[in-house]
Simulated assay, not measured.
Amino acid sequence: MKLSVGLGLGLFLSVTFFKAQEHQEHISSFNALTITYKFHPKFFLYAEGQSRGIQEYTYPDYYEIKGGLGYNLTKNHKPFIGLGRYATYKDRKINREEFRVWLQDVIDFKKGIVKFENRLRAEKSWFYEPQTGKSSERMRYRYRLNISVPLNAKEVKKGTVFANVYDEIFLVSPMKPTFARNRVYGGFGYQIDDYFGVLGGYLWQREFEASGNKNFHFVYLALNINIDATKHPKKTYDFPGAD
């Protein structure tokens, strides 16, 4: 099973890359730094910084800084509240700013060594466009199924290589169309030690718009830092994935 998962991911990444070239769609960058700090057996803080080079791979034209508070309701059930600031650049000037708050619920379960994570999120956003003075608001609803499989161990721990795939859908209001976005990701990760883990992979994103659909192709790279101050004898490792 481990070999088939690895071969399947490799084939998926190769096919989607060549399709992007055939349709004159370029590769963009998607870089993230995440920090999870567990300061209580039930509570944890999460922070993330992100930059993307959408129009040009090497020039970031989008960034976000966000974070929030999570609660371990049970071992496999983690509600979360967060907020963040987001900015999009055009012609090297801020084109749109966004302030966002959200509520989410994460429920996961394991089948053998395979972990299935279900994430539901409701977001409220306020936008401002500095160049035009225009303001707007949006509600957005997201669902993600995230699947991870350790490849050289029975669970993720120090020294573990793992495969990770997910699919996420986005629904918006009041804009049209309601089904606004779909993301598909495939990649691999490595838990370096008790604190640091790295992720890398390919993310395909389709935007559904009244004027026509758009495809984006991202090379995703992330450094995840996990700090557990609870002194719990069994550590857990979080790898949030592209968000």
Rank of each mutant, 00 (worst) to 15 (best):
K66M: 14
I27D: 00
S51R: 01
N76C: 00
Y46K: 07
F17S: 14
Y63E: 08
L83C: 12
R85Q: 09
Y62S: 00
I65Y: 07
I27Q: 02
S51Q: 13
F43V: 03
P79L: 01
L33R: 13
E48V: 01
H77D: 03
Y62F: 11
N72T: 04
V15N: 13
Y59R: 13
L13W: 07
T74V: 01
F39N: 09
S14A: 14
T74C: 08
Y46M: 09
V15F: 04
R85A: 12
D61Y: 01
S28F: 05
Q24A: 10
P79Y: 03
H23D: 14
H23K: 11
A20C: 15
G49Q: 13
G84L: 15
S51A: 10
R52C: 00
S29C: 04
Y37L: 07
I65Q: 06
S51I: 01
L83E: 14
F44M: 02
E22K: 12
S28K: 05
E25F: 07
Q24I: 09
R85E: 13
L33A: 14
H26E: 03
N76L: 01
F80I: 08
E64K: 06
F17Q: 14
S14F: 13
G68W: 04
L45T: 04
E64G: 06
R85K: 12
Y59A: 02
K75V: 01
